[in-house]
Amino acid sequence: MLVLPLALAACATPRESCLSSVGREGRVLDALIAQTRGNVMRGYAIEEREELRTSRQLCRYRTDEGAIARRFCDRTVVEELRVPVTIDIEEEKVKLDQLLQRRERVARVQAEARAQCVARYPE
Results as ranks from 00 to 15, higher is better:
42 R>I: 01
5 P>Q: 02
5 P>A: 07
70 R>I: 02
31 A>P: 04
17 S>L: 15
109 V>D: 15
75 R>E: 08
56 R>F: 06
80 E>F: 14
96 L>T: 03
49 R>W: 01
19 L>N: 00
103 R>H: 08
71 R>Y: 03
99 L>V: 03
80 E>L: 14
28 V>P: 03
60 R>L: 14
107 A>C: 05
95 K>Y: 03
106 V>P: 05
5 P>K: 02
96 L>K: 08
5 P>E: 03
62 R>F: 00
85 V>F: 02
50 E>K: 13
5 P>I: 04
2 L>Q: 07
12 A>I: 01
38 G>A: 15
78 V>D: 12
7 A>D: 00
70 R>N: 11
78 V>H: 15
37 R>W: 06
34 A>D: 08
8 L>T: 14
87 I>A: 03
79 E>Q: 15
8 L>R: 14
1 M>K: 10
108 R>F: 06
58 L>Q: 13
30 D>G: 11
75 R>H: 10
111 A>E: 14
59 C>Y: 08
4 L>E: 11
65 E>T: 15
112 E>N: 13
3 V>K: 12
19 L>A: 02
75 R>G: 01
111 A>D: 11
51 E>T: 12
10 A>R: 10
42 R>N: 03
14 P>E: 05
67 A>C: 05
54 T>V: 15
89 I>Q: 12
36 T>D: 00
3 V>P: 03
9 A>D: 13
72 F>H: 15
102 R>L: 12
22 V>S: 05
2 L>C: 00
36 T>S: 03
14 P>H: 04
105 R>G: 10
122 P>Y: 06
93 K>D: 09
123 E>G: 10
57 Q>W: 04
21 S>Y: 04
24 R>N: 00
89 I>Y: 05
94 V>H: 03
55 S>L: 13
82 R>A: 09
15 R>P: 01
20 S>H: 14
2 L>N: 09
102 R>I: 07
84 P>Y: 12
99 L>R: 05
73 C>S: 11
7 A>V: 12
55 S>H: 13
87 I>T: 06
6 L>N: 13
4 L>P: 02
69 A>T: 09
30 D>W: 00
2 L>P: 02
87 I>E: 01
4 L>I: 14
108 R>Q: 12
95 K>I: 06
117 C>H: 05
122 P>H: 09
108 R>E: 13
23 G>M: 11
